[in-house]
Design a protein around this nucleic acid. Structure first.
Lengths: 341, 341
DNA sequence: TGTATAAATGAACACGTGTTCACTGCGTTG
DNA sequence: CAACGCAGTGAACACGTGTTCATTTATACA
């Protein structure tokens, strides 16, 4: 029962089938030439013995494991966990395994990526932090493709997949304008991600294109991220000039917090202001919030990311790609549909 | 720039330091005897060349990789993502890497665990589904320790770490009784996890110990899990006999949904009923919910799980352990502190 | 000084796989 | 009948590491 259990190898299958080990490898990998009846015989023997390849040996030989490294941060954040779920799902679906690492500083990220190369991963997906140049170079030297999600940098040979923040800002702006909003604010937090900053800039730009002067646009920077940051920002909001009618949030957590903060001061959406946040997290759909949000197409983001990895695995030196994934406006209670009646 | 990049091996370090490869191995692993000056010389050479061991070769040789397989389901669920975050954090902290797999059926779980053995993982942590006997046997034969979190089964050589549902039910019951509640309900969903069922039973038992007759306890089974399940259950709740005063939920998502469902019918906590749910997820702390919850000690769960793995790696045949981790009552608005004034 | 003991080192093997290369036997063609 | 090509096979090597074992060197002791 508790014997050392010699694990069964391709050699065992070969002995059992009366062929050489090389034939076993060919029979199972569909490479090289092999007689049909030998093949079936070997496969039968393998099944009978319950043979399973040793991924470590296989990877060592191929100089590549079927692992894909995933870098994430703050997994419990609702959007991030949804993205991670999508990534893992897609990774498994395409026959890989997810090596997930949580990273909170760039130093950690460096150590992490080093370990990825030590495992000879087939690819690296970065959803947090910005890949340090030295490590990216290391990956490039090992011919390990790297792709970033929801960030854009100009790194040679590194692809990026990103939700279309510009389009999202335009969708939000149009919706606000249809409601007749004429004063605006946008909320972000100090030390925001690249995507957060980008969304704010895109919002300002979209308003400018719509001939809304910059004096009608107020920028609010919360001291921290997440619900608490948004709540605190609302509690500290300067109301001496009244509330802006259209408020745009860099992410859903900030938006929920901001809404709850305003409620504590006696204001609510859409009665007193309109609110649109990025990231259509499950929570935003709940009765207590019913936020109008910009939905990121998570399956598309994940699918494109893996496309990039596989494509670059085939031709490692192709030019870096930047793929923008469209977002869509999910209209809910905090800035409802416009009644045409 | 895009040359094949021969990766540097221990042999290269050996050549560079003018010793044999075996010495390199000893210098870096602190095993076997080695002259101090040779050691520093080798380490210097390794650093100079930027040598990093190949984990695949290392694992192949040791018959064990430094990977730990983690089985999860529905990652985007708030409690599950918090648990996953804690696990990954703890796994990295102890020098392993997390191989994360999402699983939705027992068939998937079987395939997954098979792949874990193919990677010769150092351990498997199951947070979803119940480990199929055949696969557990396979792991046992490979001497791969398996530990389950928040479930208990009687499987030889498999350890379990579980929040103390009984204690949680008692805490909730005591709190309800102090408020003078005399009619109760508990909410779960059809096809619940083992933990969910257990919590309901423990609640009934705690009430029975407090001399509350079973006719005062109502059981509600939602058709599905999560917020939507709880909301639907509240909307369908039979009010002909009025509302129970003390309502206990198997998890936080159900509780949030139930609360919002009741609000849609004009009821609210703690005005019309008291509500306590398991899982102190971030959302429950938010202003719109402020749920009184039972907090699971996630760091302790994760730490104990890894303790089990490491302990069983040292002595594989020790008796199966069941570790109960205490929970604590977080008193918030839906069943507030009792005013002694 | 000779010997026993310990420390330090390198050659060799094992881990399990994929792939190259030489070889055999067979059918085809000139 | 000879020559040729070709499908099928197995021996051997490479991947990079950890560890055993024999060998060499230095040290202590009688």
């Amino acid at each position: 029962m508790s014997k050392p259990h010699k694990s069964i190898t391709a050699q065992d299958v070969a002995n059992h089938a009366g062929v050489s080990r090389a034939v076993v490898s060919r029979a199972l990998s569909d490479k090289g030439s092999i007689a049909p009846e030998t093949k079936t015989k070997v496969i039968a023997a393998a099944r009978e013995l319950g043979y399973q390849v040793n991924f470590l040996a296989q990877g060592l030989n191929r100089k590549r494991s079927q692992l894909i490294g995933v870098v994430v941060a703050r997994i419990k954040d609702p959007f991030r966990s949804s993205l991670l779920e999508g990534l893992i799902h897609m990774i498994q679906r395409r026959g890989y395994q997810a090596l997930v690492t949580e990273v909170n500083s760039d130093k950690e990220l460096e150590a992490t990526m080093r370990q990825f190369t030590q495992f000879r991963v087939s690819g690296v997906i970065v959803t947090s932090g910005q890949p340090p140049a030295t490590l990216v170079n290391e990956c490039v030297q090992f011919k390990i493709p790297v792709v970033g999600i929801n960030r854009e940098l100009d790194i040679p040979l590194v692809d990026f997949v990103c939700s279309d923040n510009q389009q999202g800002a335009v969708l939000a702006t149009d919706h606000f304008l249809k409601w007749g909003c004429h004063r605006f604010a946008w909320l972000n937090y100090a030390g925001s991600t690249w995507a957060g900053v980008q969304r704010g800039l895109a919002f300002e730009q979209a308003l400018e294109s719509a001939k809304v002067g910059p004096h009608s646009v107020q920028q609010v920077i919360a001291e921290q991220d997440g619900y608490e940051g948004g709540e605190a920002a609302a509690l500290a909001f300067d109301l001496s000039q009244g509330l802006p009618q259209g408020i745009f949030c860099a992410n859903a957590q900030l938006a929920c917090g901001f809404l709850d903060g305003m409620r504590q001061r006696g204001f609510d959406a859409p009665k007193d202001f309109h609110l649109i946040g990025f990231d259509n997290t499950p929570q935003t759909a709940q009765y207590s919030y019913r936020l109008t949000t910009l939905n990121q197409d998570i399956p598309a983001l994940c699918s494109e990311a893996l496309n990039c990895l596989e494509s670059r695995n085939k031709s490692p030196n192709q030019a870096a790609r930047l793929i923008k994934v469209p977002v869509s406006l999910v209209v809910r209670h905090t800035s409802p549909v416009i009644n045409l009646g």
